[in-house]
Simulated scan of single mutants.
Amino acid sequence: MAKKPASTANTPAAPQRRRRGFEAASGLLNTQIRKVGEARGFAVSRLLTHWPEIAGAELAACCRPVKVSYGRGGLGATLTLLTTGAAGPMLQMRLPALREKVNACYGYNAIARIALTQTAPTGFAEGQAEFTPAPKPAPKAPDPHVMHQAKAVADGVHDDGLRAALERLAGNVLSKAANNKGHH
Rank of each mutant, 00 (worst) to 15 (best):
A2L: 15
K4P: 06
P5C: 13
T8I: 13
A13Y: 07
A13E: 09
A14T: 08
A14N: 05
A14P: 05
A14R: 04
R17T: 06
R17K: 15
R18V: 06
R20S: 03
R20I: 05
L28K: 05
L29T: 13
K35V: 14
E38R: 11
E38P: 08
A39V: 12
F42P: 05
A43R: 04
A43L: 02
V44Q: 00
V44C: 04
S45N: 05
S45A: 12
S45W: 08
L48C: 00
L48I: 05
T49I: 05
H50S: 15
P52F: 09
P52A: 03
E53G: 12
E53A: 13
E53Y: 06
I54E: 02
I54G: 06
A55Y: 02
A57N: 12
A57C: 09
E58L: 10
E58S: 10
L59E: 00
L59I: 01
A61I: 01
C62F: 07
C62T: 15
V66A: 01
K67D: 03
V68Y: 00
R72H: 09
G74R: 01
G74C: 01
G74F: 06
G76I: 13
A77Y: 07
A77K: 09
L79E: 03
L81I: 12
L82P: 06
L82V: 13
A86W: 15
A86P: 08
A87W: 01
G88L: 10
M90S: 15
L91E: 02
L91H: 02
M93T: 15
L95I: 02
P96F: 00
A97T: 15
A97C: 07
L98W: 06
R99Q: 05
E100F: 07
K101Q: 03
K101R: 08
V102A: 00
N103L: 08
N103V: 04
A104K: 04
C105M: 10
Y106W: 10
Y108H: 11
A110W: 06
A110E: 06
I111V: 03
R113W: 02
A115N: 03
T119F: 11
A120W: 12
T122F: 13
T122K: 09
T122H: 04
F124N: 10
A125G: 11
A125Y: 11
E126K: 02
G127T: 08
G127I: 01
Q128R: 15
Q128I: 13
E130T: 14
E130I: 12
F131C: 07
F131H: 07
F131G: 01
P133T: 11
P133A: 07
P137D: 09
A138Q: 07
P142D: 03
D143C: 07
H145N: 11
H145G: 07
M147D: 04
M147A: 11
Q149F: 09
A150M: 01
K151I: 11
V153M: 03
D155V: 14
G156K: 06
V157H: 08
D160I: 04
L162V: 09
A164Q: 03
L166S: 06
R168A: 02
L169Y: 09
L169D: 02
L169I: 13
G171W: 00
N172F: 14
L174G: 11
S175F: 02
S175T: 13
A177C: 05
G182H: 11
H183E: 12
H183R: 15
H184D: 15
H184I: 14
H184E: 11
